[in-house]
Amino acid sequence: MDWQKLYWETDNWVNHLTFYEDELQFLQKLLDRYFEDLVQYQNLDEIREEVMRFQDLKYTCSKLLANTREHRHQLALAINEKDTEHGFTRQTHLGLQEKLQDFTLGFNTTKKEIQYITKELVESLKQ
C-alpha cells in the first residue's frame, strides 16, 4: 500500500473540508443577516427545512474534518514507522472518500438553495 499517496490525498481532503467550513461560516452569516426578512417573505416551513439541512451539513463537515484529520495522522504514523499493518486499511480510506463525495454533493445543493432564497429576498428588498 502506498501510504504517502494516501497521505497526500487525505491532506487534500482536509484542505477542501477546511474551505467548505469557511464557506459554511459565510453562509451562516448570510442566514443570520437575512433570517428575519426571510421568514417574512418566504414560506416558513421551507426556510425551517433549509436551515435544518444547513445545520446538519455544518455538523457533518465538522465531524468529517475531524475524522479526516485523524486518518491523516494515522497515515503519517504509518509512514514514519514504516508500518504496513497499522490498524486501518484501504477500506477506511475509501469509506472517508465516499463520505466526502456525499458531503460535497449535499454542500453544493444546500449552498445553491441558500443562495437562491437569499438572492430573491435581497432583490425584493431593493424594490
Rank of each mutant, 00 (worst) to 15 (best):
M1L: 09
M1C: 04
D2W: 04
W3G: 03
Q4P: 03
Q4L: 15
W8Y: 13
W8A: 06
E9A: 05
D11K: 11
N12M: 13
N12F: 06
W13N: 01
V14S: 03
N15K: 13
D22Q: 15
E23F: 06
E23T: 04
F26G: 10
Q28V: 11
L30D: 06
L31I: 08
D32A: 13
D32S: 12
R33S: 15
Y34F: 08
Y34C: 08
Y34L: 04
F35P: 13
Q40T: 15
Y41S: 14
Q42D: 11
Q42A: 08
N43R: 04
L44T: 06
L44R: 14
E46T: 05
I47T: 12
I47C: 06
I47M: 11
V51H: 07
V51M: 04
R53S: 09
R53I: 02
R53E: 12
F54L: 02
F54A: 03
F54I: 00
D56T: 02
D56H: 03
L57V: 10
L57S: 05
K58S: 10
Y59G: 10
T60M: 02
L65F: 00
A66T: 15
A66R: 11
T68Y: 01
T68M: 04
R69N: 01
H71N: 04
R72K: 11
Q74L: 09
A78V: 09
I79N: 03
E81N: 14
E81A: 10
K82S: 07
D83I: 07
H86D: 08
G87F: 08
T89N: 15
R90Y: 08
L94W: 03
L94G: 00
K99W: 04
T104C: 03
G106V: 00
F107G: 10
F107Q: 03
T109S: 09
T110M: 01
K111F: 12
K112Q: 10
K112V: 04
K112T: 05
E113M: 06
I117L: 11
T118C: 08
T118Q: 12
K119D: 13
K119I: 07
K119S: 14
L121G: 13
S124I: 10
S124A: 13
L125Q: 12
L125T: 02
K126F: 15
Q127G: 15
Q127W: 12
